[in-house]
Structure formats: structure tokens, C-alpha cells
């Protein structure tokens, strides 16, 4: 655990030097990558560790974005608004989890998928609070320069990614993570062995929501303007899953690696095939699932220099 924490600390510290050398474009990309990392690591709690195919990331992201935006609308400072967003995602996921996590397999997957649509519909109709389909403008932070703003949001996302990673590490190396692995392998056997499966699954679901909620709120502050179809986009859910699959489900650094690789691919695709980028994204997903279902890290194990897995 100490070694992994050390590796991660070095990694995050190096990433922290990014604004010193990067220009605006790279800084934007870096912020997005960290955000993707948060989404992927978060999904890993429920999808990777507990093995529940959740498609609820988009719902938590949108909920966080709107909670933060509405809080800021009522005068909360950015930092407080982000915390409010995280808390609301946490509470929402806990309640939702108590209902949804009784379902398994496809039923759980689709039910979790629909949550984002439901929230979008509710946000759309709550015009007074959210601006409805018109979207919502957020205050621009009072900062000297555009560069300073960009750096501010970069560091905010970096801090969130660090916290998310720390939570992952703590969970993976504790009774919680162990219990989730048991559930992932055989839920009824885990139950028989004394694992309080409901509690553990709800914990995993809540963990998969809280940081995503904060990320949504930071994103909202960052882009100054949000609208329902943007932040409740089901692609957030799909991307989180794909990034984890890419990196290797259930592993510690897999989601981060997946986020980095995925963003690079996405950026290339965006630039070259602007009209058909979701189609190319689809193709990537198909290829990934068919040929690399265990992720990139599984490739390394086939190489001669790869060490034995612990």
C-alpha cells in the first residue's frame, strides 16, 4: 500500500507541474483528463470492485453540475457549492442504491441507465430553479487572467482526482474492498459468509457518486454554462465504463491509465472525424470489447518483463 501511495503521489505531483509548462490548450486537455480520471475511478467502485454494471455516472454528473450551479446561483462560493454537489450526489446515490441494488444484471444496468433521463426530465421542467431547457449561467470566478482561471480549475480537478485515488486505495486495501470483491465473485456466497451485501453495495454505489457529483460541479463552474442534455449525457456513463475496461477493471491504476489513453484517442478522433466522432467512438468500443476485454494492463502480463501479479 505504501509503495502504491508513493507512486501515485509522485504521479499526481508531476501532473501538478503541468500548468507551469503548458499552454491553454494543454491545460484544458489536462483538466479534462483529470475529470475523466475521476469518472473512471468512481465507476470502478461499483462496476469494477462490486461488479455491478452501473450506467448511473451521467446521472450523478448532471446532478452534481446542477446542484453546484444552483448553489452558486444562490450565492454560495465555488468551493462550498462543489461540496454541496458532492453531498447531494452522495445522498441521492445512497437512497437510489437502496432501491436499485436489489436488482441484478441487465435489470440493474438498464434501471441505472434510465436515471439520467429521469433527472434530465425533472431538471427540464423545474424551470424556476434550473432555467429548464434554456440552461443555467454560472458566475465567472473573479480572477485576474484567463490563464489564472484555467490553472485554478486544473488544480481543483487535480485535488479531486487525488482524493478519489486515495479513496480507491483505502477501499481496495480494506475490508470494504475485500467484501466488494466477494460480492463481485459470488454474491449469495458472500452473503452466507457474513458480508452485509446491501450495506457494501450501497457504500460502493455512494462512492461511485460522490466524486462524480463534485466533478460535475467543478465542470459547471469551469464552463460557466450548463444545459440538461450536456451534463446528463449518457456518454459520460459509457465513457467511464470504457475507460475502466481499457485500463483493466478492478485494478488500482487501470482507470487512470484508461482515462489517459481514452482522452488521447478521443482527442485524435475529435480532430480528424468531427462529424462522425461518436461513430468512431462506437467502433473503438466495439474493438475494445471484442479484442481487449481485460484491458491494456492485461497486455503487459503477456510481456516477458512483466512481474508476477501480487
Amino acid at each position: 500500500m505504501r509503495r502504491e501511495a508513493l507512486v501515485a503521489a509522485t504521479l499526481f505531483a508531476l501532473v501538478g507541474l503541468f500548468p507551469l509548462v503548458g499552454e491553454a490548450y494543454w491545460l484544458r486537455l489536462g483538466t479534462t483528463m483529470l475529470m475523466y480520471g475521476v469518472l473512471a475511478m468512481s465507476w470502478n467502485f461499483i462496476g469494477g470492485m462490486a461488479g455491478y454494471p452501473s450506467f448511473a455516472v451521467a446521472a450523478f454528473f448532471g446532478l452534481g453540475a446542477y446542484s453546484g450551479a444552483v448553489a452558486q446561483k444562490f450565492g454560495a462560493p465555488a468551493g462550498l457549492a462543489w461540496c454541496i454537489a458532492a453531498a447531494s450526489a452522495l445522498v441521492f446515490a445512497t437512497l437510489l442504491g437502496l432501491a436499485l441494488l436489489r436488482l441484478r444484471g441487465h435489470y440493474f444496468a438498464i434501471a441505472s441507465l434510465v436515471v439520467a433521463d429521469v433527472l434530465r426530465e425533472l431538471v427540464n421542467s423545474a424551470t424556476d430553479l434550473t432555467g429548464g431547457g434554456m440552461g443555467l449561467n454560472l458566475p465567472v470566478p473573479a480572477m485576474s487572467s484567463i490563464d489564472a482561471q484555467a490553472a485554478f480549475f486544473f488544480y481543483a480537478m487535480l485535488a479531486l482526482a487525488t482524493i478519489t485515488f486515495a479513496a480507491t486505495l483505502l477501499a481496495a486495501r480494506s475490508k470494504l474492498g475485500f467484501g466488494l470483491r466477494c460480492i463481485q465473485q459470488n454474491e449469495s456466497a458472500a452473503d452466507m459468509l457474513g458480508v452485509d451485501t446491501t450495506l457494501y453495495k450501497v457504500c460502493a454505489f455512494a462512492l461511485s457518486a460522490v466524486f462524480v457529483g463534485a466533478a460535475g460541479a467543478i465542470y459547471a463552474s469551469w464552463v460557466h454554462y450548463i444545459e440538461p442534455p450536456d451534463v446528463f449525457d449518457v456518454l459520460y456513463s459509457v465513457k467511464a465504463i470504457v475507460m475502466v475496461l481499457l485500463g483493466g477493471a478492478g485494478s488500482l491504476f487501470g482507470p487512470l491509465l484508461g482515462a489517459a489513453v481514452f482522452l488521447s484517442l478521443e482527442e485524435l478522433v475529435w480532430r480528424k472525424f468531427i462529424d462522425v466522432h461518436t461513430g468512431v467512438l462506437g467502433l473503438l468500443i466495439v474493438l475494445l470489447v471484442m479484442f481487449l476485454p481485460k484491458g491494456l494492463l492485461s497486455l503487459s502480463q503477456r510481456l516477458p518483463w512483466a512481474g508476477k501479479r501480487p
Binding site: A109, I241, V242, G282, I285, M290
Partner: peptide, 18 residues
């Protein structure tokens, strides 16, 4: 597993709808 088949048809759907 469910997750993989779902993701596969999701990817195919992205291609078709795009």
C-alpha cells in the same frame, strides 16, 4: 458478462445512430 455485451451493443448503436 452482462457489462461487456451491453457495452458491445452500445458501441454498435453509437455507430449506427451516428
Amino acid at each position: 458478462p452482462v457489462l461487456l455485451t451491453l457495452t458491445l451493443t452500445f458501441g454498435l448503436d453509437l455507430m449506427l445512430s451516428n
